[in-house]
Design a protein around this nucleic acid. Sequence first.
DNA 1: TATTGTTATACTCTATAACTATA
DNA 2: TATAGTTATAGAGTATAACAATA
Lengths: 165, 165
Amino acid sequence: MSEPHPLDDDADGRETSSTAGIDHACLQHLLGYQIARADIPTRRAFAHRIGKPLNLTAVEFSTLVLLAHNTGATPKQLADALAMHAPAISVLLDRLAQRGLLERVRSETDRRLQHVLLTAEGRQLADEARERSLTAERTLLQGLSAAERAILVELLQKVAGARGV
Amino acid sequence: MSEPHPLDDDADGRETSSTAGIDHACLQHLLGYQIARADIPTRRAFAHRIGKPLNLTAVEFSTLVLLAHNTGATPKQLADALAMHAPAISVLLDRLAQRGLLERVRSETDRRLQHVLLTAEGRQLADEARERSLTAERTLLQGLSAAERAILVELLQKVAGARGV
DNA sequence: TATTGTTATACTCTATAACTATA
DNA sequence: TATAGTTATAGAGTATAACAATA
């Protein structure tokens, strides 16, 4: 996407080679396509800077950061915030608990509920991860000005809040 | 995301209820998080307007549209354009071929290559799908001005072209 | 009767290795 | 020796149903 014109044909009209790219101008205007494409370097940057070194998936990262700022959140709240289903959150929390990063305690006032609490180790990892996320973000968005970054985030928030159907 | 302040606590400092949302301001500035959130209504709109009525996944849709504008593209070119691995494209094309939407013909000049061609039915479905995508796009982005839409697409393209690592 | 959370299960996606046929 | 494409397979992610405990 950084090349000026990544089309197949040369200027003199030579046949398309099998290794050259094809023209995706027909999809460029579609938000879903652009989101999917922007997601690729974003996930790669996450994996490189956070995921692999800290052994965290994207949702594990989000869960830890959310819990660091929302002490005692319930699994249901996490599921809603992360757009995940209850069973997925359940096994996710199992995994993080087994690593000693968090604990689940029954609510006193409503014994159906649990409150999820980070351990000291969990909080430390959450802080480390969030710090790394700032570096990763800078590297990923170095082609954009500060104003452009702010606009991008704002517009994505508008899309996220859209009804869509 | 459309509410002004979707925080847990009421103004008088009442305790967080289990059903209220939690504060994700700590993640709001992260591009990966925003992309993941914007992806949700986008995929929902796709499924509602195109995926279910036309029985197409997002990559199947993209494949048909790409082929409609790049007659005779090779599986490798499609794999590169869609950021998919060769085996995934292989079974994807199998599925679409079995539905009578496309055909694969061996290249005369290099018999390792195939050229993928839409059938009349495939081309018709591609046209129908692309037409529906315009409607879906309008509905999804009705909260944004035309200028904002253009900026959003442009900024996402910049991100897609970023090195990121 | 409704809600929270768990377990079990199935289905899709993705990733890799191993193979063929061509060059 | 390298490339295009296929098959087989394993792994992760995601979805639903069935269940237990509590309200």
